[in-house]
Design a protein around this nucleic acid. Structure first.
Lengths: 134, 134
DNA sequence: ATACTTGTTCAAGTACACATGAAGTCAAGG
DNA sequence: CCTTGACTTCATGTGTACTTGAACAAGTAT
């Protein structure tokens, strides 16, 4: 009687049932009760899903998210968990950010390109180069 | 006698031979001459590789790079090629950039976290939320 | 002649986060 | 009883840019 079906949870959470099964298999969601084989969730699953969503927004991989959720003593407070993972993740995000900003530079330089041959582009728009002026 | 072996080109370009074969199969590099089955490159391959490197720096996928290189009439000047591809790529890069900046926000908020439970984190550090102050 | 090095092709593996399809189970409705 | 619909598990597919391994060929050195 009580307990939400997987499709009900998925619908409310904006996910697909396969994602919920995947999270469970990946150790992000605890295995819920079963009624004749079918999963029955209680409302606390939504809090869990919200944390997973937050971890995803932080750029954590599934493995990192699993560590974040289950990789500590059960009573470990969130700040300790964050510090353990976010500190390691920030440099990676920043590196990605630098790469993307570099892409922007190259693309904008490309849009201002007046080269006559592609080889000329390669010389002028070098990745590492300081190409400011036309 | 003339012509560089695949390993010589790879070494000078900072790539591995497998990458050169891959580029060739992907249509980024023209098939070079062969001497008893082995590839022999001439020096122009380095210009080509420089352009490929530039395209990669712009964030182009292999398919986009192939279009950039071979998807136009042979005499199409670089500016036309750039405009066709860079204009489509920039919004994607910017979207990626926004996502990464969001990650940074979440990670930094996580580092300042003082929540007592993970569910609290999810409520306070919501992805879309305006979480400025402690 | 024989071993070594370097090359060749082709198939399959890598990481990530799920989606998809096949085949079977289960309860309710007609 | 039989169909329908939602569910189950398990294996495989998706996209990207290569790398790696297997099995084999050919030129070079000893």
């Amino acid at each position: 009687m009580d307990g939400l079906t997987i499709s009900a949870v998925a619908r409310q959470a904006g996910l697909r049932p396969s994602a919920l099964r995947y999270y469970e298999a990946a150790g992000l969601l605890p295995a819920p009760a079963r009624v004749s084989g079918r999963r029955r969730y209680d409302a606390t699953v939504f809090e869990r899903l919200a944390v997973i969503r937050l971890a995803q927004a932080a750029g954590f991989t599934i493995a990192e998210t699993r560590t974040f959720l289950n990789g500590f003593a059960p009573d470990t407070p969130p700040p300790d968990r964050w510090r353990a993972l976010a500190a390691a993740k920030l440099p990676a995000v920043d590196a990605q950010l630098v790469r993307l900003l570099g892409m922007r530079q190259v693309l904008e330089a490309g849009l201002r390109c007046e080269c006559l041959a592609l080889a000329e582009c390669a010389r002028r728009l070098s990745t590492d180069g300081a190409t400011d002026q036309v």
